[in-house]
């Protein structure tokens, strides 16, 4: 029950619906884990997204020769469309060979493994790019502020 409360409050604290000073966090059992909410919330959300995608992809791909669509979609979330097309094409090329040799279930498993392992580096590269752009904007704003002030 406590675990459920922690997860629920962590998710609610992302958009700050439940602020850290809220009385819900002030109970003895939750006080200690309050600082962890920033880590817990994204982890819980990611697990939930993966679970939903895996479950729905099973329905989508039964009887189809194409790789799991939801797995490919994960890559499109973080990588630009043209390059992602090439990456997904590379995976599909190998997927078809594995499917022919080992069957659809193993091929789907292989595809999901590849995508989950690839999402990390791609998401990290996208984050770094975003941070670089954000720091550029911040620097420009700081220069502008100094010129004005």
């Amino acid at each position: 029950m406590t675990a459920f409360k922690i997860i629920w409050l962590s998710i609610l604290s992302i958009p700050e619906f439940v602020r850290p000073e809220n009385s819900l966090w002030q109970t003895d059992e939750l006080k200690g884990v309050k600082p962890l909410r920033f880590v817990l919330a994204p982890v819980v959300l990611l697990i939930a997204i993966f679970a939903v995608l895996v479950v729905t992809s099973r329905r989508n791909t039964s009887g189809s020769v194409h790789p799991p669509l939801n797995a490919a979609f994960l890559l499109y979330l973080f990588y630009d469309a043209k390059n992602c097309d090439a990456l997904v094409g590379d995976l599909e090329e190998r997927y078809r060979i594995i499917r022919k040799r080992f069957g659809a279930r193993r091929a789907n498993f292989w595809y999901w493994t590849q995508v989950i392992r690839s999402v990390g580096p791609i998401a990290w590269a996208a984050t770094k790019k975003l941070l670089k752009a954000a720091s550029g904007v911040a620097a420009a704003l700081e220069i502008w502020r100094r010129i004005r002030g």
Partner: peptide, 12 residues
Amino acid sequence: RSIGSVYTTLDR
């Protein structure tokens, strides 16, 4: 090695 890390390194 993941294909994602190969692509991100090639981009870099």
